[in-house]
Design a protein around this nucleic acid. Sequence first.
DNA 1: TACTAGATTATCT
DNA 2: GATAATCTAGTAT
Length: 192
Amino acid sequence: MKQPLPVQWFQRQPEIVAQELIGKILVVIEPDGVVLKARIVETEAYLATGDPASHSYRGRTQRNAAMFADGGVWYVYQIYGIHLCVNVVTETEGRGSAVLIRAAEPLAGVERMQQRRKIQDVRRLLRGPANFAKAFGFQLADNFQPVVQPHRFFQDAPGTAPVVKRSPRIGISRAQSMLLRFYDAQSAFCSR
DNA sequence: TACTAGATTATCT
DNA sequence: GATAATCTAGTAT
């Protein structure tokens, strides 16, 4: 069994973490013992400085406080009233950067994900940030929680590294020229 | 397959 | 009071 990625792995520049997170595997062990696994295929970086699309751009607020914590914690927030977006905080205390997880490829626990999503199509199960959050059972309460825990962690993936491409981020109105979305060009599980 | 409208609330100004 | 790092369902093509 692979070792979990250590917290220091996340305490680097968001562009680096976003790019290297592609192909990594998220493992979640549910309270009843069911194991969920997924291979990350799409992420976006939100920078600490000079990035108007980042929640941290206008400084620290109650909502984005987790972004300013030490790297290696979750930043979870609700958007459009009904959806959750899940980020991994990067860099260190006081910076304010994070990586949004946008899509993944289901590897284990597919039935549990299908129950939560109320759909069968495996390709759509983890496509889009809110869908990913729902399938894995993320809650607002996961905000500020450590990324490295016994029941929920990332691990390195076996095999060759994926071909990672970059493009403009999706769904934002500012800084659309910045190429901060990273995705596995060979995966059929990306959101676009 | 493509486009549009509507959902629904925490958070910020 | 306005906005938002979205998704789904519905109608049109």
